[in-house]
Write a protein that binds this DNA or RNA. Sequence first.
DNA 1: CATATTTATACTCGAAATGAGTATAAATGG
DNA 2: CCATTTATACTCATTTCGAGTATAAATATG
Lengths: 327, 327
Amino acid sequence: MKEAVSIGLSAAILAVEGEHPSVLVVAHQGSEDALPFGPFDPAQHRTLESGLRKWVGEQTKFDLGYTEQLYTFGDKGRHTPAGGDKGRAGADTSNRVVSVGYLALTRQAIEAPHNQWRGWYHYFPWEDWREEKPAMIDQVILPALRKFVKEAPDSESAELRRERMNVCFGEGWDEERVLERYELLYEAGLVEEFYRDSGQDMKKTAARSQGLGTAMLFDHRRILATAIARLRGKIKYRPVVFELMAPAFTLLELQRAVEALAGLRLHKQNFRRLVAEQGLVEGTGKFSPSARGRPAELFRFRREVWRERPAPGVRLGVRQGRRTKPA
Amino acid sequence: MKEAVSIGLSAAILAVEGEHPSVLVVAHQGSEDALPFGPFDPAQHRTLESGLRKWVGEQTKFDLGYTEQLYTFGDKGRHTPAGGDKGRAGADTSNRVVSVGYLALTRQAIEAPHNQWRGWYHYFPWEDWREEKPAMIDQVILPALRKFVKEAPDSESAELRRERMNVCFGEGWDEERVLERYELLYEAGLVEEFYRDSGQDMKKTAARSQGLGTAMLFDHRRILATAIARLRGKIKYRPVVFELMAPAFTLLELQRAVEALAGLRLHKQNFRRLVAEQGLVEGTGKFSPSARGRPAELFRFRREVWRERPAPGVRLGVRQGRRTKPA
DNA sequence: CATATTTATACTCGAAATGAGTATAAATGG
DNA sequence: CCATTTATACTCATTTCGAGTATAAATATG
């Protein structure tokens, strides 16, 4: 009980601008993108969350609105001090860091110095299915994963890998499995972090040259994957999207925001039916000055719903096209 | 980043025996029930979970099967060393404990020395609606919460408290809000832990005499509430119930298990329809030696489903009776 | 000015899922 | 044999869901 460990708090601070979902990254030591990251000081803070709010406020100059704890990672090797010893099994008895990841949602998309907003899909290009199924899945990911299956040490392990491949990238896209997919790609050696963490030289590896997404510092991309997965799940049963919206918005704007988060296109007429039926939203009499087309009414979120309905949320109305159904 | 903190790992190890959902508790120092609890030793373990498995194996003599991380609590004051200083704002600069809670599911219900299985609903009597709505809700909880609303420092705070009361205990029971309800009862001073943590003498307090559920050591009841909430949510979309079942079971046994977890009664015919339709289960040709009535076929879980279906799980088929619907 | 184009919004329709039963089968205990 | 108990199959009305069609209200263009 006396083992000293330090606690790192990392925040995936998310926002949406129009159709672009983004995350706040800081220009950290070196070149890799990083999430805002700071230590938890037990002497100063009563809760983990208050510690987080404190230094996020200091570093990024704005208040966290909605926040939610994601996960606590304690894996050795996946949080190597940048530039430090890189041996995987290396007995680094120095100071072990356990990192607690948080999700935060905000409307503000300010540009503080050293901070900037970057699109999610830079880090997870295979997760954006709004236009079409990303070609890299069939062209790069699946071939590489099939190789990963073949190279399994034994047949049991191969079967397991095959299952994971199918669940993650096979028939029937489940947009919530963001973390599972990233973890699989990591283990299969298809993301840069794998080579960094295991001390191998990335340049030497063939797979590396394909560069699946942009790498991040430490385990920050894992935390971001967790954040996106959680958010994608949550929008379906809790009205969290509104934390990301301006006070007034058109229904199309709302739909575009949900689509940006889910990485999927939705059926317009059904989306508005769902939102309306659930009473999540009420019209202000005002209308949006639209460039062309009929002007859309501006709506506002009815904060009261969370009192009335036990589990409100924007159910994504219908996926368009695809969606294979099992017998 | 050099602040020393120690990490405690607590496990809510859950099982179901027939209709009785239970949790493994250890006879700890003093009188309060405790979850199996141990330190994380960063020098010895690569991940938090491997640390957990290690000492749970040592202390309780059995393997954890399915495990899942729940939440990391770091609140000052809610993890006071038993018998130690109890001042809430007391500057105990000693050693702060951050506790990571885990959920584990198991079939075995062995009786190790010093360990024992106890029913969930000893700790959360208001959560079991299988027979009927627990009378204590109307007779004890709601009156006390109304008092809590009245005593709010200002009207804004009162409105917030009223909302929480309604969401937690008002119309439309949402069986998943186990943690929210426990937290509300804690803040309203209706559970023993509140008085212990704030250093007040419980005997002196009127509310105490009503004793809502059995208290636990440290924040273990909070962790257990988190575990139950998580499990109640998860059974609806992932086939986790089967982690708790024997290899072969009748559909009624499966239903009773789900009911025990959810604290609700289900519609028998529809439950079997759902389970069958989803292909979660397949009949062995064998039949259960039933005491009376037509013998029921024994079924087994089809492990393959998790390959075939993207998000299988036992959707609870239909709540019987109640369920008020908003306009 | 008429008309194509664009966007918003209302309404329809069939397929599936859901909630609540009824009906029948297969055992046991008098 | 018959009342009782449990299992299991099937029916039916209602709601939800996925996918359209239809119409309205604006702008752009010839």
